[in-house]
Design a protein around this nucleic acid. Sequence first.
DNA 1: ATAATGTATATGTAGTTATCATATAAATGT
DNA 2: ACATTTATATGATAACTACATATACATTAT
Lengths: 117, 117
Amino acid sequence: MTRESNKGETYRHAPAFILLFLARENLYGAALLSKMQEELPRCFADSAVIYRSLQELEEDGSVEAYWETDVSGPARKWYAITAKGYERLAQFKEDIEIRKKNLEFFLKSYKIIVKKD
Amino acid sequence: MTRESNKGETYRHAPAFILLFLARENLYGAALLSKMQEELPRCFADSAVIYRSLQELEEDGSVEAYWETDVSGPARKWYAITAKGYERLAQFKEDIEIRKKNLEFFLKSYKIIVKKD
DNA sequence: ATAATGTATATGTAGTTATCATATAAATGT
DNA sequence: ACATTTATATGATAACTACATATACATTAT
């Protein structure tokens, strides 16, 4: 492998997980990142992934944004999931179920191969 | 999203799954691809992924190759997993367990959000 | 006043990965 | 001879990732 760096562990989950978190509550970018880092077993996101994915989701119409300027500190751009975002979230869910099955196939087969728990 | 094409669903599993299949039995590229397409819920691999990943794994020392020329049809390049390949497979297993947890987090949260089975 | 710090959004860019199409080659069928 | 089948391999473009860096505003310290 050219890739011995052990980097590149995000696996394109970003939009799916962002929509998931926004389905629970409206969030601005930095808060979204914090929540993900707290709650995900291994968080795949850094601020670049978050902000760029949010931009893409906004262009796509999956989320809507509004600025909060009346708080202390720099303005926050809050995001809310839209009807289209819920549709995409449902599609991601179908996709993730299949991906999970693939991973389960791997782990089941691995267990047989190494013959130990 | 710039990416409305609904393509790009491989998520970098290729080397992990190739090593898994080679841990069960030696295979040549085309046979490996067939097995994967049969056994994986959604196969992420096409022949380009298979052959390029096999090359990378060979350069890496994770697999060894030998040619079979005494069969009908074009020569087959068989692959066997090495000790180093088993090490990498074990690393992939650790990685996949965590990724599975992320997906389970997604599905569990999704279930709560949509409030239906 | 102004300099440093903290919070938040955003982008530059180089390296890596994925996709689809296409190329090469040998044996077999007609 | 020519097309078909099986098999390995690569070219080119698009997409994605990672880490660094930039921009901006407000608060706090000097």
